[in-house]
Nucleic acid binder design. Structure first.
Length: 526
RNA sequence: GGCCCCUUCGUCUAGUUAGGCCUAGGACAUCGGGUUUUCAUCCCGGUAACAGGGGUUCAAAUCCCCUAGGGGUCACCA
């Protein structure tokens, strides 16, 4: 039998990082088995702008390169793929259960049921349905129906059952059905509830493996019972642990972003993001854009491979040594049996580490393409990027080397993209490397004269010039190089100085040196 | 509170199914050293864990029991 897995998001308008991990596991299991991956929109209770609500979700899949064989946009043999359009199927299932007596119309007022539930809770007893409506005669039921008395449809739980499932990650899990209330499967307006619609859909879409977060574990006995009542085969189950917030065991949630901002584990990631998002005109404090959302990673310049590797290694491992997985390797190696049982916290440091690895695997051109958009949005490059600006960018990227961990990091090399001095200037570094020793200014002035006379402005020649200068003046590299760097880049450290000078160009180096020396002459100003 | 799940270094994890190869391995983070004009990279090294208590056994991270802690879920949400 071909494996068919599904991911069934409700249209919320964003893609949660934990949900993405669940989707990835489903996708990997399908691909690993040469099966199909289905995307289904669980919108039984939503009535909002669908495009707006599912767009970001589909975008996240597309960005990560996770394709779906059936679902929105592409359709498929088991469509439609929106629950809101599958009402006929649900109604038929409901009729079947009603006819077979495995479900019943419950006319008990909701307030009454609620009161019973509360009473049971107060008495510290498990709550089970009163089933008062089961005592109604056929005539009474018809009268109620004719009178339009509101009622829901409940599944009749077989209370004598002990129900055991064999879960791919939890093993055997057993429930005592005598402790379960009869679940509502259709609202008083006749519309189906999640547990019921899901079962109908999983069955009619021939889903073989339901891989979902463990918060659904308690829904499983109900779903098994519905499958059985309908005479359907049950899919195989795999309840994977939810993704926890860094350094905690709590499910990561978009409602706790303020708390995460203050957590030491998360701090670095937020800082990096804020720095970048601020420069490209996005609101870094918006709840919709945080490391809880997949979109955030794209917006700050993660690569899909980095995010994917991070996700697959939270809650799953191959063995005791393999950390790096390309998408192809994940497909090859993924298995449900090696999913971890306990919740795994999202680890920002490892995310970053995987990201640095995968960005370094990219071709020069891919890195260039990734960075250009950030420079444009940051206002440092025009929209059609002029050829020479592209060349410059490519050279800055090469120079930056592994300092470029995110595409968005290119924005921290602003000094190469502006003609004037509109870039951050590290005053502390300036004070330490330039102002601290009086003679440094003289050295820089002498050096500037030589740089002004330089006829060839290339790294190699500049290296020669600078080293010769050191010899002439009997100085050490540390006496001049760091100072020169601060003067022309505003930074206390960075990539190779000679390459930096070459890329900056003679004109900018000289003018920035001039203004730095002016500044040094009157340090009290500013 | 009921039901269910989980518990190995700071973090992600290997080892638990078939007890001995585990004086518990790896990775990330961290600390120290080396390379480098600085930073980053890279190389070398260090710190650091079987939740607790009882059993069973020649032998337990691994099996059994109890306790504790953490979490999920208890809707006419999904």
């Amino acid at each position: 039998m071909t494996v068919r897995t599904r991911f069934a998001p409700s249209p919320t308008g964003y893609m949660h990082i934990g949900g993405m991990r669940t989707a990835l596991f489903n996708w990997l299991w399908a691909r690993h088995n040469n099966g199909s991956f289905i995307l289904r929109i669980d919108d039984t209770d939503q009535q909002r702008n669908m495009q707006e609500a599912i767009g970001p979700i589909l975008d996240a899949f597309r960005w990560l390169g996770l394709d779906w064989d059936e679902g929105p946009e592409c359709g498929g043999d088991c469509g439609p793929y929106y629950q809101s359009q599958r009402r006929k199927l649900y109604d038929a299932g409901l009729q079947q259960l009603l006819a077979s007596g495995q479900a019943y119309r419950d006319f008990e007022p909701a307030a009454e049921t609620q009161a019973q539930r509360e009473a049971a809770e107060r008495a510290q007893q498990p709550f089970v349905s009163s089933r008062a409506s089961l005592q109604l005669s056929a005539e009474q039921i018809q009268e109620n129906l004719d009178a339009g008395t509101p009622h829901v449809i409940r599944l009749l739980i077989p209370r004598e059952r002990q129900l055991t499932i064999t879960d791919h990650v939890r093993g055997e899990v057993t429930w005592d059905c005598s402790l379960m209330p009869d679940p509502v499967i259709a609202r008083s307006d006749g519309s189906p509830l999640y547990n019921f619609a899901t079962v109908i859909d999983d069955s009619s879409m021939q889903i073989t493996h339901v891989i979902r977060a463990e918060e659904h574990l308690s829904n499983t006995p109900i779903q098994v019972l519905i499958h059985e009542a309908l005479g359907q085969q049950t899919p195989e189950w795999a309840h994977i642990p939810y993704v926890a917030a860094p350094g905690s065991k709590e499910k990561i949630s978009k409602r706790k972003i303020d708390k995460y901002r203050k957590s030491p584990q998360f701090a670095r990631l937020f800082e990096m993001g804020d720095e970048i998002l601020g420069q490209i005109g996005l609101d870094a404090t918006a709840d919709a854009l945080s490391p809880v959302m997949v979109a955030w990673y794209e917006q700050v310049g993660f690569t899909p491979a980095g995010v994917l590797n991070g996700l697959v290694r939270t809650g799953w491992s191959l063995d005791d040594r393999t950390e790096l997985f390309s998408l192809a390797e994940m497909i090859e190696q993924f298995s449900l049996s090696r999913v971890i049982r306990s919740p795994a916290g999202l680890d920002p440091d490892r995310m970053l580490n995987f990201q640095s690895h995968w960005i370094s695997e990219l071709s020069d051109d891919a890195r260039l393409q990734g960075c250009l958009g950030f420079l444009q949005r940051g206002g440092l490059l025009q929209d059609p990027v002029p050829a020479e600006a592209q060349q410059l960018t490519a050279r800055v990227i090469t120079l930056a080397g592994d300092r470029l961990r995110l595409f968005g990091d290119i924005l921290s090399f602003r000094e190469f993209f502006v003609a004037g001095e509109d870039y951050p200037f590290d005053e502390k570094a300036f004070a330490k490397r330039v102002l601290k020793k009086a003679e440094t200014k003289e050295h820089l002035a002498a050096l500037q004269a030589q740089l002004a006379d330089a006829s060839t402005w290339q790294a190699e020649a500049l290296s020669g010039l600078l080293n010769t200068f050191l010899e002439q003046q009997s100085l050490r590299a540390g006496d001049v190089f760091p100072a020169l760097r601060v003067c022309v880049t505003g930074k206390g450290q960075g990539p190779d100085l000679f390459e930096t000078l070459e890329l900056l160009g003679q004109e900018r180096v000289l003018s920035r040196l001039t203004s730095s020396l002016q500044k040094a002459a009157k340090p009290e100003v500013g």
